[in-house]
Design a protein around this nucleic acid. Structure first.
Lengths: 222, 222
DNA sequence: TGAGTTAGACTTACAGTGTACGTCTACTCA
DNA sequence: TGAGTAGACGTACACTGTAAGTCTAACTCA
């Protein structure tokens, strides 16, 4: 009987970079990047911390890995659509994906990302703009401007400590800390949120459209 | 002789929240937030770590404190200028200040900031927009859109691992990692940076103007 | 002046972090 | 059969923030 290749003991699947990244991604999604430690990842895999180093180089390597997995989830811009539609779709997709992984926007912004998914994503984005008639410089500028909005907006959104549905009651409980003589405008704005005149919910596409429209005018001028 | 109040021993100035924050700010500016530890702050003050807790509540309290110091350095929007000029000035000032303290943009985006300088800064910003004729909702939206660009752009800029003056030579040494068959557009863009056709330096005002112009059109339509 | 209070720096300790380094076991292949 | 190796493990180190308790010097007030 050949038990050389197929072991029939129901041992757990062998450790691998993929399994480590998969568990790390789950832990990060559940508790943020600060909840991600080598010991916790190892424990979730039924293994000791140092065993992970047989498959990944370091904790940074793990974070790079899960960042690239997240990026691979963003829809690539489509070359068959007009550039504005393509860029809007990819921005909306990026925004959506980053909200699903609340730690990711910050991680992307604070480290150098050269994973294959990221490189591909950037290449396609610049390519889409280039094919739309932007010069190389303008394609690069446009990419940077759109991404500034994506990351800036999403980070502000994620950092907001209150759920949108509770803006009103939260404003009500904190209004006393915003005295009208010191902060008249914030005070007034809070009152409007309390009485329901304004829900306080931001809109990702609001600022995005300013950038896309501005870029479009600039493109047509050439 | 009354030596009750004025001790003439040249003892170091007493520990205080202000001195702690001042040293912490310097350490953060020099080595980033991750270089900021209670033990290092204490050592720089000639004191042991736990002594700091007589003057600050926690490390988070210190970070909140130095964030607010940084924010207090941003020029408040001026009500006597037209809103676009005022917002441009405040955006440029914010960008400039955030570049001087490379850790700060990330810190602001990843924590809740309710220091006096921050509250004042936000109140004035919303106020300036409100006085310019924006509705409360639109003033809030506008503030959010402008700040998305400020933080998004600045974070991308700070995260860039290379100095602007070395883009060309850096691109040259890394071009082999960007094969033209896999990443054709990035490859081509790198070539243009190498041969000097394009310097690769982004412009903060490029995207900012899209947002400001878009907001202006929206304001005039009402 | 003497006693009581207190501010503030100190020491110790704990539970956590990433990871360098060395060891031990089980499997592969010549 | 015996060498080589992959991979899990244990130990250890230098850090982190901070809870808890101690000690001393200065101030307050009768």
């Amino acid at each position: 009987m050949a038990k050389t290749k197929t072991s029939n003991t129901p041992s757990p699947p062998p450790l691998s970079r993929e399994r480590i990244l998969q568990v790390a991604l789950r832990l990060a999604d559940e508790g943020g990047l600060e909840a991600l430690s080598m010991r916790k990842v190892a424990q979730a895999l039924g293994v000791k911390a140092m065993s992970l180093y047989n498959h990944v180089a370091s904790k940074d390597d793990i974070i790079d890995g899960i960042v690239d997995i997240v990026v691979s989830d963003i829809e690539l811009p489509r070359f068959d659509l007009d550039w504005k539609t393509a860029m809007r779709q990819r921005a909306l997709s990026a925004h959506e994906v980053l909200l699903k992984h609340p730690w990711a926007a910050m991680a992307i912004m604070s480290r150098i990302n050269v994973g294959p998914a990221m490189l591909r994503y950037v290449d396609r984005t610049i390519g889409c703009l280039r094919e739309a008639g932007f010069s190389w410089r303008m394609a690069d500028y446009a990419w940077n401007a759109i991404d500034s909005h994506i990351y800036g907006f999403t980070l502000q959104e994620l950092n907001y400590p209150v759920e949108a549905s509770k803006y009103s009651e939260t404003a009500e409980s904190f209004i006393s800390y915003i005295p009208p003589d010191q902060y008249p405008y914030m005070h007034q704005l809070s009152l409007y949120i309390i009485d329901g005149s304004y829900d306080g919910v931001y809109n990702f596409e609001f600022g995005l459209d300013f950038v896309l429209d501005g870029l479009d005018q600039l493109r047509e001028r050439n």
